[in-house]
């Protein structure tokens, strides 16, 4: 990472991970560094946004995060959220969506939401009420739109911090164990 304060963490959580795994996930380092400034609040929002959905299941919310990350060219977010989504939805669906969501074998409300999220990520100034109408026509509830917007907000932040500080994606041997840790313990325990 590009900041030594993140590379050599003084906090207990990241130090434990560094000893146990030889690797500190970038978001963990960022969220535990001066947590009152950013990390504590972001972790709470992340827990609510990716694990507290009512309209979408956890796997779908993780898939949104992986998809947005891919559009932001964030390898870290694409891989890690994709790995968590795969635990819920299966690897094949995640792979299909990331390769071509327009032809992936997914339900139409999910596809319509991915189209919306791509536009919001890459062409935000062009988003308007007609996009909301398309989502509604595809069967997405307003609650579902709000939940997708929260995932977009959270992912847009961490993708940029990954770009700024150069998060290294987890080594392949750790991808699934880290996804399992996230699935069982969530985002607030860091």
């Amino acid at each position: 990472m590009r900041l030594s304060v993140l590379e050599e963490p003084e906090e207990r959580g990241p130090q434990f991970l560094k000893k146990a795994l030889g690797f500190v996930p970038g978001p963990v380092a960022v969220m535990q560094y001066r947590p009152a400034f950013f990390g504590r609040h972001y972790a709470r929002a992340l827990e609510e946004g990716l694990r507290g959905g009512k309209a979408w299941r956890r796997g779908e919310l993780e898939l949104f995060a992986a998809f947005i990350s891919s559009r932001n060219q964030c390898a870290y977010g694409t891989q890690t959220h994709g790995a968590v989504a795969a635990l819920y939805l299966g690897k094949a669906i995640v792979r299909e969506v990331l390769a071509d969501y327009l032809t992936a074998s997914i339900a139409e409300p999910l596809r319509a939401t991915l189209i919306f999220l791509e536009k919001l990520t890459l062409l935000p100034a062009e988003v308007g009420p007609e996009d909301v109408q398309r989502l509604r026509e595809a069967g997405v509830s307003d609650q579902g739109i709000r939940e997708a917007l929260l995932v977009s907000f959270l992912t847009a932040i961490m993708n940029r911090l990954s770009a700024a500080f150069d998060f290294e994606p987890p080594p392949p041997r750790l991808a699934k164990p880290l996804a399992l840790l996230t699935r069982y313990f969530g985002y607030e325990r860091g």
């Binding site: 307003d142 907000f153 847009a156 932040i157």
Partner: peptide, 18 residues
């Protein structure tokens, strides 16, 4: 990062409102 994300959230919520 927060500003870029917040602007997108606001545009999305405004579209929903409109």
């Amino acid at each position: 990062a927060l500003g870029a994300a917040l602007g997108r959230l606001e545009l999305g919520l405004a579209a929903l409102q409109e």
